[in-house]
Simulated assay, not measured.
Amino acid sequence: MEKNIPTLYEWTGGDETLQRLFRLFYDKVLQDEILGPVFRTMSQDHPRHVAHFVGEVFGGPAQYTAEDKGSHAIMIAHHIGKMLDEHQRQRWIQLLLTTADEIGIPDDPEFRSSLLGYLEWGSRIAVINSQQTENPVGETEPMPRWGWGETGGPYVPK
């Protein structure tokens, strides 16, 4: 018997939910004493782009690559030279998970383990790449994919 297993994108609630999550999250980030200075110059479109990126990674439509003209390399490029640290990384995850709870993102253990796995993976890559002076990812690098118990890696920075 074949099961219709929803993607993480569908389970999250799709684009509307991701847009709401990242809009509220980045409002908090801008007010945060640890993260605010890092993001104070972000574009007004940043929350939308991140929602599109995460949506695509979670099995949703290719809005980041098609509509936003983004790529994995472009996302990585946004972190180059930012010199992020572990304290900032942990605060970023904490604020995002708090916002997810506040707006009612699904809290079942299976989904949350996939979400947290992705946040850990992606935020650690962001910290590593923030120490770089050049983008270690080429334009042909595929977008990461994340699913139920599946990771988008391996990713090994140069």
Rank of each mutant, 00 (worst) to 15 (best):
G104Q: 05
H79T: 02
S114L: 02
P136L: 05
P154E: 11
Q132F: 04
G60S: 05
Q31F: 12
G60Q: 00
T17N: 07
G59H: 03
K82Q: 12
T140W: 06
D27T: 14
E102F: 03
S130H: 07
E56C: 08
E16L: 07
D85N: 15
T17F: 06
H79V: 03
P157T: 09
Q63F: 14
L30C: 13
A77G: 13
K3R: 14
M42G: 03
Q90W: 03
A62D: 06
A51I: 10
R20K: 11
T98C: 12
R124E: 14
P6C: 11
Q19P: 06
M42E: 11
H87F: 13
N4M: 06
E134A: 10
H46C: 06
S114I: 04
G81Y: 10
M1F: 00
G147P: 00
D108K: 01
D108P: 00
Q132T: 05
V50T: 09
E86C: 14
L21F: 05
K3C: 11
Y26A: 12
E67F: 08
G153R: 03
G153L: 01
W92D: 10
R145P: 07
E56Q: 14
Q19Y: 13
P154A: 11
Q94S: 12
Q63M: 12
E120I: 15
T65H: 00
G81M: 09
P109A: 15
G13C: 02
D27E: 14
V127H: 09
G122Y: 08
K69F: 08
K3P: 02
V127L: 13
A66P: 01
T41H: 15
W148K: 08
G147F: 00
P37G: 04
S123P: 00
V38P: 08
R112V: 08
L95H: 04
L24F: 04
W146V: 13
E110L: 09
R48F: 15
P136N: 08
G70A: 04
S114W: 00
